[in-house]
């Protein structure tokens, strides 16, 4: 139960695949919402939102925190620092970081090709990007297992390796960077690039000094979301990962294992750890995006 709670936590932060521009609570720092005047319905709206957030987010999190400290702080600490727990967390963070960086580069490249290039089947590719959002993650796992598993038709065996984890997580987190960079690229002013060219800047300089800084906030935000999602991912790694403790067992699998061997406190402790990592990631993103937002729309 706790496993799904923590997976859902990270998963719940993702951008809806249907909308090209992320929702109002997005970290993509582009349009600041206009300040609204308080209306008469405001106290009710605030109350409803508070209630909803409490029931859906805050109370379960509080319950998780309480469970995790049921054996006292000493228990919490020893559950957290158990070698297999630490290993699972280390693998999770390491693989997620690799996947996030991979996404930062490939996602930006994909967004670039989708916005700036024209090729037959572009619309189809555009739809394909969202597929990992729509596909149940366990299906992703089966798909990857049939391609890279023991019976691999191309003789590439990623089953029960960290490469397998990377491939699975890369598949699931593909849309994040693409979908945050794409709208920024669409709106990017091509004249700015022409201005840089007229001032003598070559292609690489234009990309590095003009385009990249414009895309950076969206790239950071997409990468961060991909990281947060990867940390809590369960379904897509469950088959191809192999669940080998201290090698390919990720935190969410460790949590499930602890539940299965009736150690709910251990599960809760690792869940809290994941929660803290995810929250810290999102918090840092907030700071980074609000800083660039302030600069570009300062008045």
């Amino acid at each position: 139960m706790t496993a799904t709670a923590s997976a859902g936590l990270a998963g719940g932060t993702h951008v809806s695949p249907a909308e090209p521009r992320p929702g109002p609570d997005s970290l993509v720092p582009h349009h600041a919402p206009p300040a609204q005047r308080p209306s008469r319905g405001r106290p009710y709206a605030t109350g409803l939102v508070t209630l909803w957030l409490s029931v859906v987010v805050l109370l379960p999190l509080a319950a998780l925190a309480v469970t995790s400290t049921e054996d006292g702080w000493g228990g919490f600490w020893s559950a957290l620092t158990a070698p297999s727990a630490l290993a699972a967390l280390r693998v999770t963070v390491l693989v997620s970081a690799v996947v996030a960086l991979l996404n930062a580069v490939m996602g930006t490249l994909i967004a670039w090709v989708l916005v700036r290039d024209d090729f037959p089947g572009k619309g189809l590719v555009n739809v394909l990007i969202d597929l990992p959002f729509a596909l149940p993650t366990i299906v992703a796992s089966i798909v990857l297992l049939s391609l890279y598993g023991p019976d691999s038709p191309i003789h590439v065996h990623f089953n029960a390796t960290r490469y397998g984890l990377v491939v699975a997580l890369a598949f699931v987190t593909l849309p994040f960077v693409v979908r945050s960079v794409q709208p920024v690229l669409i709106e990017a002013d091509k004249e700015v690039e022409e201005a840089a060219a007229s001032l003598g800047a070559g292609g690489v300089t234009i990309f590095r000094r003009v385009i990249l800084p414009t895309l950076a906030p969206a790239m950071i935000s997409g990468t961060g979301l991909a990281f947060a999602r990867a940390i809590g991912e369960f379904g897509s790694v469950v088959l191809i990962g192999g669940n080998i403790p201290r090698h390919t067992q990720v935190a969410s699998q460790y949590i499930q294992q602890q539940i299965e061997i009736d150690q709910p406190v251990n599960a809760a402790v690792i869940s809290v750890a994941l929660l803290v990592i995810a929250f810290a990631t999102l918090f840092l993103l907030r700071i980074a995006s609000s800083r660039s937002l302030r600069r570009e729309t300062a008045s």
């Binding site: 840089a196 060219a197 800047a201």
Partner: peptide, 28 residues
Amino acid sequence: PQQRGIGFVFQHYAAFKHMTVRDNVAFG
């Protein structure tokens, strides 16, 4: 355009938004 020795000014400014005024002017 890089090698034509031109200066170009656009209708919509084409400012480098992430740079200060000084860095914009200094770019070239």
